[in-house]
Design a protein around this nucleic acid. Structure first.
Length: 217
DNA sequence: ACCCAGGGTCATA
DNA sequence: TATGACCATGGG
């Protein structure tokens, strides 16, 4: 370590100063965020954007329209996002879930625990996708953790490199004020930061957090 | 040509 | 419960 260990909040402030406001999640509707969360699974966002544009152009960006669209037809329009047969099935599942529970106005009344349980029961929705929807659609203070978050913060010496998703999520939620807007921007900054770092390691000499890193690892 | 991206499911041991 | 195969496009 080249200097005293910073707080979790200080790292956030540094990223925000360097990268500016992120404004996540970019979308025109709640449902579009849900669709994007599924389409971006293991997929670069640039490829997801094309699929979202295609869906809008075909007037498929509503749960009703998506349910009515056949799986092969749906797959055709999300081709650019990769794994399209799998994702077409997942979009049908999440569309049925969203529509059958009364969409945003009804679901937004649910307590967070019920919302999370319900989402995790939907085919194609795992912990990260569920939390992204809970945070960016329903504005609950749940911290979204991804693979890069784990690599970065274990390199920074805050957590063990093989800690669980839940423990890492708990780490952020207990070391920051419980604020959905803050959590949303923080996760966005971590993802954005990953793009400017060399691919084989979560930091390098040009990394804006390099002075905090433990290069002995 | 290879590796990865804003993961999750399913089969196997 | 813990790995591994699989999905599949587009950019580096």
């Amino acid at each position: 370590m080249n200097q005293q260990k910073p707080s979790i909040k200080q790292i956030y402030l540094r990223l925000r100063r360097q990268q500016g406001e992120q404004g996540w999640w970019p979308a025109d509707s709640h449902f579009e965020i849900i669709v994007g969360a599924v389409l971006t699974q293991n997929t670069a966002w640039t490829n997801v954007e094309k699929a979202i544009q295609s869906l809008k152009q075909q007037n498929l960006m509503t749960p009703q329209a998506m349910i009515a669209c056949s799986r092969p037809e749906l797959a055709k329009h999300i081709r650019s996002s990769g794994t399209f047969n799998i994702k077409a099935k997942r979009l049908h599942a999440i569309s049925r879930w969203y529509f059958s529970h009364g969409e945003f106005s009804e679901i937004s009344n649910w307590p967070t625990a019920k919302l999370r349980r319900s989402l995790l029961a939907v085919h194609g929705v795992g912990a990260e996708t569920a939390d992204a929807i809970i945070l960016y659609v329903f504005k609950r203070p749940v911290f979204v953790v991804d693979a890069y978050t784990k690599r970065l913060f274990s390199r920074l010496g805050f957590v063990d490199e093989d800690c669980s998703y839940e423990s890492l999520r708990g780490f952020f939620e207990s070391n920051l004020e419980s604020d959905a807007a803050l959590f949303g921007e923080y996760h966005a900054h971590i993802v954005e930061h990953a793009k400017h770092v060399c691919k084989v390691r979560p930091y390098c000499e040009r990394c804006s957090l390099s002075e905090y890193c433990d290069f002995s690892k």
